[in-house]
């Protein structure tokens, strides 16, 4: 892991911990947005995982109704302890322990009440697509983004179509009459 990637992950983990403790959802989301830049640039598996996880947590913690489920405390405590553990491990260059702690957060989901389990699984899945859309927005192709996040290109296309990605000025490369002429030429309809 590159030192700058490590530094950024540690910073995001520490701040995420504070945000969860202060119930500051906006801060969690901002942290996820901040780390997207490095995720697109370095395309490191761990930084992408942390970007998706932080965004998922912002979605999960903003739903105060999830906290009424009996197993919420298990999820909350595991999340806090694992983030703490992951941050400590990474600062000590123990990548295995870092990854194990991150995995703990995903593993605990299966131990939750059925409804909470499904909500949280959905939140993680939808966050992968939402973060994928942000990577694509940064100029990474659909295929490469899907590959990096381990998601389906169909889901990603469906999501990005509803964003403003196609509107950016850099996206227009050829006058429409020229492109239409190419298509017409294929069918002898010029």
């Amino acid at each position: 892991m590159k030192p700058e990637v490590k530094g950024e992950i540690v910073d995001v983990l520490k701040n995420s911990l504070d945000a969860i403790r202060d119930d500051n959802i906006k801060k969690l989301r901002d942290l996820s947005n901040k780390i997207i830049n490095s995720s697109s640039l370095f395309q490191d598996e761990d930084i992408i995982t942390v970007a998706v996880m932080t965004y998922s947590l912002s979605k999960i913690y903003e739903r105060s109704d999830y906290r009424k489920y009996p197993s919420w405390n298990l999820f909350n405590e595991t999340t806090i302890n694992s983030i703490k553990g992951a941050s400590f491990a990474l600062q000590n260059n123990n990548i295995d322990a870092f990854e194990k702690n991150i995995k703990n957060i995903l593993d605990v989901i299966d131990e939750l009440d059925n409804k909470l389990k499904n909500y949280i699984k959905d939140a993680f899945y939808n966050s992968q697509i939402a973060r994928g859309s942000r990577l694509h927005e940064h100029g990474i192709s659909l295929g490469r983004t899907a590959e990096l996040l381990g998601i389906n290109q169909w889901e990603l296309s469906d999501y990005i179509g509803r964003t403003g990605i196609a509107e950016v000025v850099e996206g227009m490369t050829m006058k429409e009459d020229r492109r239409l002429k190419i298509a017409r030429g294929l069918f002898g309809n010029d």
Binding site: S40, L41, S141, G143, R144, E147
Partner: peptide, 12 residues
């Protein structure tokens, strides 16, 4: 920042 940006995948 000194890193090549991997923009495309194999299928494309």
């Amino acid at each position: 920042r000194g890193n090549p940006v991997k923009i495309l995948d194999r299928a494309e």
